[in-house]
């Protein structure tokens, strides 16, 4: 889903990254075309193209002339490293801040984490 307030091309790039991380798009696998992204998300093709190009420029995807876009070898591992770096900032810090607001200690958080068997 496309949400308000953030550039659409950034969201398209993130969704492709997510698909690579969870294996929906395997390495050396072909990525849908810009027009397919545009039709699926009901967005302007130029905007979809911009999202794809972000990933071509940073090496996550590569182009085969006249054939299409493919996932680069090693892309998944690089994305995982980058996302793990972001994990603390994006998920852990807000969790600790919210817990502090509610008077939940770090020990209690640790216990909750161990209890949750998901």
């Amino acid at each position: 889903m496309i949400e308000d307030g953030r550039p659409i091309f950034v969201q398209i790039a993130e969704q492709i990254e997510n698909d690579i991380i969870d294996g929906t798009l395997p390495e050396e696998g072909q990525v849908p075309s810009t027009n397919e992204f545009a039709a699926f998300h009901r967005i302007n093709p130029a905007t979809a193209g911009k999202g794809v190009n972000v990933l071509v420029e940073n090496g996550t995807l590569y182009k085969k002339r006249g054939i299409g876009m493919f996932v680069s070898p090693g892309a998944r591992e690089r994305l995982l490293v980058a996302r793990r770096d972001e994990f603390e900032k994006q998920y852990l810090r807000p969790l600790i801040a919210e817990a502090a607001k509610l008077g939940i200690t770090r020990d209690q958080i640790a216990k909750l984490l161990q209890k949750d068997e998901v």
Binding site: N35, A38, A39, P45
Partner: peptide, 11 residues
């Protein structure tokens, strides 16, 4: 209309 506009614009 939106869907056909986007599809045809892409082509």
């Amino acid at each position: 209309f939106y869907d056909r506009l986007l599809e045809d614009f892409a082509e």
